[in-house]
Computed example of a mutant assay.
Amino acid sequence: MDRAHSSVNSLLEQAACIVRRSKETAGTLEPTESYKRGQIEELISFADSNGLWIDFNNLSVIYLDKGGENEVFYDGAATVYKLNNFEYAGDNLENFFIRITAHNKFFSNVPYQMIGFAYNSLHEFCAVLIQPHIKAEREATEDEITDYMQALGFEMDYLDEYHNDQYEVFDAVPNNVLYGIDGDLYFIDTQIRLKG
């Protein structure tokens, strides 16, 4: 697979299609917890077949932080790398792809791009995502976050949770939303799911 000549979201779309197909193949006979295991096996096969493994030993990056689902690295210039272990996807990896697609729709000034797969320091299978590095003046305030979300057509449910007719956005807290040196807000790490 020639990543240099594919569209930005091509890998994301292909992986989402594999995950969706894997769940459809499993049907209703499989318990939901086995969906994720099967979906991961399909993605590993996809990565093997298409040379989509990212070797962090060959990248010039520095380790920044680790959260519940991401190990975060920085290339020192313009890009943040996130190894996402699908922890917050629950029992169905489709949730991960819904979240990333929705993030790119609503927060297009700091989009995710999926560039491949890797294993993190705990040897968990991960999607490798990149985002632009944001030069921030500070963390956004709760009021700034609320105003921004309302301008996007979301209603506030709780201090860090919002919804519109299709999505719920949560964990929209100051340390996940940066106030850039350009005066814009950058939602770098919120959670998004379909409204259910």
Rank of each mutant, 00 (worst) to 15 (best):
N85F: 14
N85H: 11
N85D: 15
F86T: 09
E87W: 14
E87V: 03
E87S: 15
Y88C: 03
Y88V: 00
Y88S: 13
A89I: 09
A89L: 10
G90C: 07
G90E: 10
G90N: 14
G90F: 13
G90L: 15
G90K: 14
G90A: 11
D91C: 08
D91P: 13
D91E: 11
D91I: 01
L93M: 12
N95Q: 11
F97M: 03
F97V: 08
F97I: 09
I98T: 14
I98E: 07
R99K: 13
I100S: 06
I100L: 13
T101W: 00
T101F: 01
T101L: 06
H103Q: 02
H103N: 06
H103A: 04
N104K: 07
N104I: 03
N104R: 04
K105S: 02
K105T: 02
K105N: 01
K105R: 13
K105I: 02
F106N: 00
F106L: 09
F106E: 00
F107L: 00
S108I: 00
N109W: 09
N109H: 12
V110W: 00
V110Y: 02
V110L: 13
V110D: 14
P111I: 03
P111L: 08
Y112R: 02
Q113P: 04
Q113C: 10
Q113Y: 15
M114A: 13
M114H: 06
I115A: 05
G116R: 11
G116P: 10
G116M: 08
Y119Q: 04
Y119V: 05
N120R: 08
N120K: 08
S121Y: 12
S121N: 14
S121G: 08
H123L: 13
E124V: 00
F125I: 09
F125Q: 09
A127Y: 01
A127K: 06
A127M: 07
V128Y: 10
V128T: 05
L129V: 01
I130D: 04
I130M: 07
Q131I: 02
H133P: 02
H133A: 12
I134M: 08
I134K: 06
I134D: 05
I134R: 03
K135C: 03
K135H: 09
K135T: 12
A136I: 00
A136Y: 07
A136H: 07
E137Y: 04
E137N: 05
R138M: 03
R138Q: 09
E139M: 10
E139N: 13
E142G: 06
D143I: 13
E144Q: 15
E144L: 04
I145H: 03
I145E: 03
T146G: 02
T146V: 11
D147V: 03
D147T: 04
